[in-house]
Amino acid sequence: MTDADTSDKASPRPASNWISLIVGRTPRSGIMPPADVTGATLVLVVAAMSYLACLAFGAMVTVTRSANDWTAQLEGSLTIQVKPHAEIATEDQISAALAVLDEVEGIERASALSEADIRALLDPWLGETTESEDLPLPSLIDVELSSDANVDMSRLAERLAAAAPGIELDTHRQWLGELLSAARSAVWLSIGILSLITLTTVAIVVFATRASLAANHESVEVLHLVGAPDEFVANEVQRHFLQLGLRGGASGLAAAVLTFLAITWLGSEGGAFLLPVPGLMLSDYPWLLLVPAIVALTTTLAARMTVLRVLGRMI
């Protein structure tokens, strides 16, 4: 046997694995053409869809966790506002309020904030206020409730108001309610965006599959005529689209991770955003892997169903 004979022997089928799917090395045994006009465009579109889906998913996770944190922080605390009053000294107002609070069961701790603490609270909103000594500020009493506290807030507000003029109870409930309502809206908006992205991806893949089948009509017809069952052709086509979906999904995920890292970094630097943006926690990132997985699955299923429908029209 000559060298030429040896070199012309059919090479063994290389093992296909998930790495080859991602890096785009098509197994030689693939029957459908490895790339067509729709391939590169589809990878780009799927990457963009995955990127947007990751952002929407990340926003949903961030908002949900922030809302939970705010709720946990605020539900166990109260603030009592002591406004300056002409008939009574501020110190007496505070003493009267603390006396009332001392009698209420379920209150773990109650302490008046110093003027420096109050000014520090205002600094992020009004700028440096230490120089504005003339600015009249209400005094604040920070109250911490025990975890099993069952305080009648209406009754407490009445007792505080009766103890001294200018004392108001702030349970944060109105603010918290509005905040949670906004958070819930943001979560639903994210779900809506994710649904829209999924539907758009399906529509694009169906279109791309039809275009791919039209471009590869000869291959499909020959496979059909040599006796390939529909399942075989569908498997070949769906493998092609799984590869495209994984490549696009992975690219979108990578871009989204970089975006979230940038947001976290800018948020930690401070001053980049009006509100504090916590960004994603390290434990959130693995969840983002779901996005390219779902995108690839959606792409594969949409391609498979389209192929089977098209083949079903052939005799």
Binding site: A10, P12, R13, S29, I31, P33, P34, E218, S219, E221, V222, L223, V226, G227, A228, P229, F232
Partner: peptide, 28 residues
């Protein structure tokens, strides 16, 4: 002829056996 251009001569000829799901080692 209708030979598939992206496949080699060997792969084209093996096509009717491949679509049956048989392992290549069996028919190579």
């Amino acid at each position: 002829f209708r030979l598939l251009e992206h496949l080699t001569t060997y792969e084209n000829v093996a096509l009717p056996l491949k679509v049956t799901g048989r392992n290549e080692a069996e028919y190579r």
